[in-house]
Simulated scan of single mutants.
Amino acid sequence: MNLNNNKGKKIKIAAIITVLFIIFVVAFLVSQIGPYNKNNKKDIVIDIPTGSTLNQVTDVLKENKLIKNKIIFKLYAKLSNNSSTLKSGTYLFNQTFSNKEIINDLAKGKIYNQGVRITIPEGATSFEIIDLLVKNNIGKKGIYEKLINNPKEFKERFTYLDNKEITSLEGFLYPSTYYFKEDESEKEVLSQMLKTFESKYNEKLQKRQKELDQSLYEVVKLASIVEKEAVLDKDRPIIASVFYNRMNISMPLQSDATIQYVFKERKKSITYDDLKIESPYNTYRVAGLPPTPIANPGIKSIEAVLYPADTEYLYFVAKIDGGNTYSKTYEEHIKNVQQYRKDREKRNNSYSTDK
């Protein structure tokens, strides 16, 4: 009898412990998915960059103290079937929001638009970006120029800039749509662009860069040239391969786009006299990459440099439809150039006849 009583007591104790454990777990989970601080209603504006993964979204929320537990938040998002539907953009939250409320807003794309809307196009130069900002009364030209030419001002916040070879923010001012307050400082405006670049240049791309034994600056420099040379997305990896093939045999890149950068304001076309310019950006005279990026590339051009096509091409020339014709030899290239000129002349004559 005593044995049975003892056994029964042990079962009851085990049951009680199990129930208490379950209650504890449930209470813990409820507290973790609830508000970060139900008494703090101070607004927090966050930015979820385009293409962000669930992990990246979670990191942003955690950094801004909007969620308590990253693992539980991700699990909750997956269980609610919203993990793949979270949308990019600027959002307004506060610490009274629960995980459920945050996930619902992100899934529905309840974007918060605050301030002046500025769209930085892919391939814009720092000069063009400054002009765009100043025209919209966002900061002063002189301060922007000084900051852009002094990356050290930003390296503490953005460690990827902590490299002596990076002498300008050109290339890292990521093209996207931003909302700026009119009283926002020039440094904070540029920091938002640098932050977006940081989020785009994810671990996968960083790993690929190391596999190619390249520095970040080399990748961005070449990506900026690809950005200015490409019209169609499908051409980007092929153009990157052409430049790689040239560099591998110490052949100058001979990119008109790098010479255009010398003039600050884009010329209608590059002349033979322009090819004689004494400048480190004249890639007809100087082999290798220019001293800085020549524009701010989008993610597709960056990916093209990190994952170039496998070709033996050394030349390319534009086609009337916006694409390119590629060739391995100079002789082939000359024929393609002549064909382009014929096609262009035919098109121009056609336009004249239509008028």
Rank of each mutant, 00 (worst) to 15 (best):
S191M: 09
Y261W: 03
E265T: 14
T271A: 06
R117G: 10
I23P: 05
E156L: 12
E218R: 01
K74Y: 10
N55L: 14
N81V: 09
T159I: 13
I239M: 03
K146D: 12
N4M: 11
L253R: 03
V60L: 09
K42A: 15
V231E: 11
S98C: 07
G51W: 01
Q192A: 05
E145I: 10
I44K: 03
F127C: 04
T96H: 07
N113V: 08
I111C: 06
N282Q: 04
K12R: 12
N136E: 13
P151K: 03
Y112N: 11
N137C: 07
M247S: 00
S83D: 15
N2A: 10
K195H: 10
L147S: 07
N150F: 09
V242S: 02
D233W: 07
N2T: 11
Y91S: 05
A309I: 08
D310I: 08
K346T: 15
N99T: 02
I17S: 11
Q114V: 12
L173M: 03
D274L: 01
N282V: 03
A304G: 05
N39M: 12
K181R: 13
G109H: 06
N4V: 12
T167S: 11
P293I: 03
K228F: 06
L79D: 09
A107E: 11
I33T: 04
N81H: 12
P252W: 00
V337L: 06
S215H: 06
E128H: 08
I111G: 08
F197A: 07
Y36K: 13
R236Y: 07
I102L: 08
I130M: 03
G323Y: 09
S269H: 10
I23H: 07
Y91T: 04
S199P: 04
L86R: 08
K346L: 12
Q192Y: 14
E182R: 13
S84T: 15
D310R: 12
Q56T: 12
K228C: 02
Q338D: 12
K187S: 13
S168W: 03
T159R: 11
K264S: 12
K152G: 10
S80V: 10
K70V: 09
